[in-house]
C-alpha cells in the first residue's frame, strides 16, 4: 500500500499530441493526496486534452502517468478500466445519459461495477443525490432539468463509486455566480467528506482562488507548462507576464506590468 505522503498521481514528461500537432509537451507534476489541483491556461492551450489523457480517453504521445506508482498507459485495457473505477469525472456539459432518468444515471455505475442489491443501490442513489441537493429530481429526465441541476446530477454520478480522484472539466462554466459559488463549497465539502483528491480544469478565477491549493499553468504559445503552484500564489507572486495577465484578467501581456501588484477576486 502506498504511503499517504506519496503523490496519488504523478505525471512525468508527458507529451500530448493529435497526430503531428503537439498540444503540450514537457508536462510534469505531482498530485498530492487530498489536494485540489487546478489545470489553468487560456482557451485552446490543451487543458481539457491533458485531462483526457489522465482519465484514459487519449493516449499520450510520450511520457508517463503514474497512478500510485503504476504506469497507467502501460496497462492493458482491463486494468485501465479497473483504475478508472477509482476516478470520478464531471464532464463539461455533465454528459448525463439522455435516455435515463437522473436516478438511473447515478445508479448505472453501481449496477455495473458493484455486487450491491437493488434496494441498497436505491438508497445510495438517494444519498448521493441528497449530497448535491438533487434528491427531488431522481425520476426526472436530463432534458427536464436546468443546466446547473445537470451539473450537480453529473457530480452525483461522478461520486457514485466513492472515487479517490475526482476530475472536473470546467465545473462552473455556464453557471451563475451564486450557483457557481455553491458548487465550490460543495466541491470542498465533498473533498473533505470523501477524502478525495480533485483535479479541476477551469478558468473561473474566483473559484480557483477559493478552492485550489496547487496547480499548473499551460501556455498555448510555447505548448509547455510555464508555472506551477496554487492559483493564489501565482496571482500574488508570479513574475511571468502570461501568468500575471491571466490571473489579473488583463487583455494583453504588455498591460500586465502596468498594473502589477493589483489583485483580483
Amino acid at each position: 500500500m502506498a504511503e499517504s505522503s506519496d503523490p496519488i498521481i504523478s505525471v512525468h514528461d508527458l507529451t500530448i499530441a493529435f497526430g503531428p500537432k503537439v498540444i503540450q509537451q514537457n508536462v510534469s507534476f505531482d498530485l498530492k493526496r487530498g489536494s485540489i489541483f487546478a489545470v489553468m491556461g487560456g482557451s485552446g492551450c490543451g487543458k481539457s486534452t491533458l485531462l483526457k489523457s489522465m482519465i484514459g480517453l487519449l493516449r499520450p504521445a510520450s511520457g508517463q502517468i503514474l497512478v500510485e506508482g503504476e504506469d497507467y498507459w502501460a496497462q492493458n485495457q482491463r486494468r485501465r478500466t479497473e483504475l478508472n473505477h477509482r476516478f470520478g469525472v464531471l464532464f463539461q456539459s455533465a454528459a448525463l445519459w439522455s435516455s435515463m432518468t437522473v436516478g438511473e444515471n447515478v445508479a448505472l455505475p453501481m449496477e455495473m461495477f458493484t455486487p450491491l442489491r437493488p434496494d441498497v443501490i436505491r438508497r445510495l442513489v438517494e444519498l448521493k443525490l441528497g449530497f448535491v441537493g438533487m434528491e427531488h429530481a431522481v425520476d426526472l429526465m436530463p432534458s427536464e432539468i436546468s443546466g446547473g441541476m445537470r451539473k450537480r446530477a453529473g457530480l452525483a454520478r461522478a461520486i457514485a463509486l466513492d472515487p479517490d480522484i475526482l476530475f472536473f472539466d470546467e465545473p462552473s462554466a455556464g453557471l451563475d455566480p451564486i450557483t457557481s459559488a455553491r458548487l465550490d463549497d460543495l466541491i470542498l465539502t465533498l473533498r473533505d467528506g470523501l477524502g478525495a483528491t480533485i483535479v479541476i480544469v477551469s478558468h473561473e478565477l474566483p473559484s480557483l482562488f477559493k478552492i485550489a491549493d496547487d496547480g499548473i499553468f499551460l501556455d498555448a504559445k510555447t505548448h509547455t507548462p510555464i508555472a506551477h503552484g496554487a492559483p493564489r500564489d501565482l496571482r500574488d507572486h508570479s513574475t511571468i507576464p502570461e501568468v500575471m495577465a491571466f490571473m489579473n484578467r488583463e487583455a494583453t501581456v504588455q498591460d500586465a506590468s502596468a498594473t502589477k501588484g493589483e489583485t483580483h477576486g
Partner: peptide, 19 residues
C-alpha cells in the same frame, strides 16, 4: 468525525417523496 458531519450537513431533512 468531522468529514462525516460535513457530508451529513449537506443532506436535506427528508429524502424526496415518491412521485
Amino acid at each position: 468525525p468531522g468529514p462525516a458531519q460535513r457530508l451529513l450537513a449537506l443532506l436535506p431533512p427528508e429524502p424526496a417523496k415518491p412521485p
